[in-house]
């Protein structure tokens, strides 16, 4: 059973069809790319998968621990609790909070004490807070952010912010991680490092990853399979080699001919 099955997913915004009849399947532990020209509907698919938008029709099914969960009707936090998290194209860290707090907030769903323990500082509170602190430190260490844990997120360098966002997503203990253009704005060296990091976290955290990316070399290098989206439709899917030579994909990216390509 695939860990994520998207079936005939459709989203209309008023009269505009942003995503139409998209079918998608992710096997457990796969690293899959989602590519397409600007405005093809990639981020909309992420927003549908994470509950920020409600689908107009279609189903999204997550398989976890032998159970299947219908995600299409859940709220964003419920989807996160089910095990799907994401990063954002335009970095949405909690900018005025510290690096540590960014990660600690994402651990909230796994917190082991209730409101009363928190309000009255019962012993359970102290133990759990300590555990969270340790887990956060461990996670930040992986991303080389531990020595910056008390800095405000907004004061981090761009690359650090991107990595903190991934760390924050991982703090929710997901089974499926959605990365929205993680390499945007990075230089080639940083992009290479990022590629290694993505592969490494997949192994270390035993994740399935769906990746939106404009940097074609990155996608081709690390993804096992790729879905290509254009005008809200999946126009191709397959291995990087298959995609590279697919005629429809080339047309979508370069236009049928230069004259009316993007009209």
């Amino acid at each position: 059973m695939p860990i994520l099955a998207v079936n005939r997913l459709t989203k209309y915004f008023g009269g505009l069809t942003a995503v139409y009849n998209v079918n998608m399947e992710l096997e457990e532990h796969e690293l899959v790319g989602l590519i397409g020209p600007n405005g093809a509907g990639k981020t909309t698919i992420f927003n549908l998968l994470t509950g920020i938008h409600e689908p107009s029709s279609g189903t999204i099914t997550l398989a976890r621990d032998g159970k299947s969960i219908a995600l299409q009707k859940l709220k964003p936090h419920e989807i996160c609790n089910a095990g799907v998290t994401r990063t954002f194209q335009n970095i949405r860290l909690f900018k005025d909070l510290t690096v540590l707090d960014n990660v600690r907030i994402a651990m909230h769903k796994n917190i082991g004490y209730g409101l009363v323990s928190g309000l009255f500082r019962l012993p359970l509170f102290g133990r759990e807070e300590k555990a969270i602190l340790e887990k956060s430190a461990e996670l930040l260490n992986i991303f080389n952010l531990l020595d910056k844990k008390d800095e405000l997120a907004k004061n981090l360098s761009y690359g650090d912010q991107r990595r903190l966002e991934i760390a924050r997503a991982l703090a929710t203990k997901p089974v499926l991680l959605l990365l929205d253009e993680p390499a945007a704005g990075m230089n080639p060296v940083e992009t290479t490092q990022l590629a290694e990091l993505i592969c490494w976290i997949r192994e270390y955290f035993k994740l399935t990853i769906l990746l939106i990316e404009h940097d074609m070399s990155l996608v081709m290098k690390i993804c096992e399979r790729i879905y290509v989206l254009n005008y809200g439709l999946v126009i191709a899917h397959g291995t990087p080699d298959e995609i590279r030579t697919n005629k429809q994909v080339i047309e979508a990216y370069l236009g049928e001919d230069v004259g009316n390509g993007n009209a």
Partner: peptide, 10 residues
Amino acid sequence: EDEIAAEAMG
């Protein structure tokens, strides 16, 4: 700080 990010983080 950011309601949408907060929701997405559970």
